[in-house]
Design a protein around this nucleic acid. Structure first.
Lengths: 341, 341
DNA sequence: ATGAAAGCGCTAACAG
DNA sequence: CTGTTAGCGCTTTCAT
């Protein structure tokens, strides 16, 4: 492995000068010497060791990213945003899949600490803040993404889930629906609550009654949506529209609806939060609430870099990221307005 | 930051002993001392610095992963396999998005070299081997994944695309189809060729004529599939079935088919390679060739770790990974057999 | 069974 | 403008 000393020897200068050239400082170097050094660097294809540099500087340019699962398309878009901004700022990203397990999260916290990462972006797997608290205790700047866990003040970037649930439900109401079902998930993290709260707010605002039986717990996947739909349809007075926690479950419900002989959107309306980027072409009949996923990664990383540089920006200055209602063209025409009643 | 010296001081021993305890060697430590050291480590919550360790050992336990794009669900499943195996072996993964650009790949090659990564897993963005050659030149063990670029002997793990194309086409033939279209992609990387070659082989075996006009170039996305379908349907003698390079394009074709008033699978059969894990529920009418994505990541990483440990396993010993034909139940019943002619 | 010390490749302060 | 040197936190060899 070619080192700085090799470069210095070839260029006939002292090792310090090589550093000065590479780092553009802290002291000036004569142009003649600079060129000699640069030539030697090129000739030897010298690449300074980040390892040695990190040890000397007592810091790294590495970020840790802990998330439940890259396979969830939602997370992979967030990941791209994070890595993109990191690269732009000469940071490197270590990827950690917690697999929805807190034990594993803690293992990664230790590993990242051993690597002396400059900061961590964390998408929690459970409702426990233990991994976060450990990071904070060790002085590792950390930003929570997407999920906000209540009970403690944390630095987090989240989407405006309450507004999303509100927009979604309002949209269904505008189509003329009176009985609107909701598929939630096991309520542990706050964003699911936010979405349902938005749903409730829209109903209240429209003066529609709130029927507890119309809110069924779901999960994350297709099968949960399908089951939830079946459950809702066995009610004596079933809903005519559905708000789903995410669009994977919405698609599950869609499939179940098809089997019930319902046409979307003529007989029934379904809306969900979009986790699947491909949804726009695989399920044209679906209306979704779009979350700014790339932006969440970007914003989170920019915030983290500010924390690392010691800026300590106040958390209050970060409002939830805006969400959007995406009405997709299904067969070309907009969803038909439903007759009230 | 608490260091080894702090631990040694607290335990009342020399720093070397702390290392012996942590590394279980290379020299024995008396049980009494060992316990004292362990207690000091716990009390101080000491975490040894991987940075210092890496510098001293002149090697790291870090792998680089360069891929075009995590958002492609195909890659994100591969990624999970890679990170999973890495973690099991106490390796850490640095994630690099080349964004389908070779320039960026080269930038990452330099960055990973600076980090002194132990090895690199590379899913190429283009047909150029330059990034690979640079890595090899610097002595960084590297494994190519998924794409095999012809023209040079490389270490690579690929799926059996030829067999996949063959199975897919054979399946369509068995359904009774005689004119089978194929959507390819801009032919640059070998796996697209493999798939088309399998398609051709199946046709030849069945004694069916090969019509060049039935093979149209596609791309990666929905729109390419849609366009390709339109192009095929304008032929005077259009195909009755379709083999698509991936199932994103297959879904595009599906959508176009719907607009043509064709029912799947009654009037038309479409088959594609699966890139979308969600495809099984978003597009029930689609039959797919399944690739062992997690396994590709796993196998690639295991191979890389063997390369790193200097085992130098012969590339010849790695046959392409097996693919599978997945006939999905669409509306519950199997695709109907087509009347010949 | 343990302590002392060299040295990995850098940065930056100190000395010319 | 440039050379010399201390030291970052470890591993491991050489002493004891």
């Amino acid at each position: 492995m070619v080192t700085r000393n090799d470069v210095a020897r070839l260029a006939g200068v002292s090792p310090a000068l090589v550093s000065y050239v590479l780092n553009n400082g802290p002291r000036p170097v004569s142009e003649k010497t600079r060129l000699r050094v640069l030539k030697a660097i090129r000739d030897l294809d010298y690449q300074p060791s980040a390892v040695a540099r990190n040890l000397r500087l007592q810091r790294t340019s590495t970020l840790g990213l802990i998330l439940p699962d890259t396979q969830n398309p939602y997370f992979s878009e967030v990941t791209r945003g994070i890595e993109w901004i990191a690269f732009e700022n000469d940071y490197t990203v270590i990827l950690c899949h917690s697999g929805y397990s807190m034990e594993r999260e803690l293992q990664y916290v230790n590993a990242l600490r051993a690597q002396r990462v400059a900061g961590v972006i964390w998408i929690p797997a459970t409702a426990s803040l233990e991994p976060y608290n450990r990071l904070v205790k060790f002085g590792v700047p950390t930003v929570l993404l997407d999920r906000f866990i209540p009970g403690q003040k944390v630095t987090a970037v989240v989407a405006d889930n309450l507004r999303g649930g509100y927009l979604a439900t309002q949209y269904l109401i505008q189509l003329g629906h009176q009985r609107i079902g909701a598929i939630s998930r096991p309520v542990d993290l706050s964003h699911s609550q936010g979405r349902i709260q938005g749903y409730l707010a829209a109903l209240r605002e429209a003066g529609l009654p709130i029927d507890e039986r119309l809110i069924v717990p779901g999960g994350y996947w297709l099968e949960n949506g399908r089951k939830a739909f079946e459950q809702l349809m066995t009610l004596e007075d079933p809903p005519t529209a559905l708000f789903a926690y995410n669009d994977i479950m919405a698609i599950g419900a869609l499939r179940a609806a098809h089997q019930h002989g319902l046409k979307i959107p003529d007989d029934f309306s379904i809306i969900g939060f979009d986790n699947i980027p491909e949804a726009d072409f695989t399920s044209p009949a679906l209306t979704t609430i779009s979350q700014p996923k790339f932006d969440m990664g970007r914003t989170g990383t920019e915030l983290l870099l500010r924390l690392i540089s010691g800026e300590n920006p106040s958390v209050e200055s970060l409002p939830p990221l805006d969400v959007d209602l995406i009405v997709r063209e299904s067969t070309g025409k907009a969803p038909s307005k439903r007759q009230a009643g």
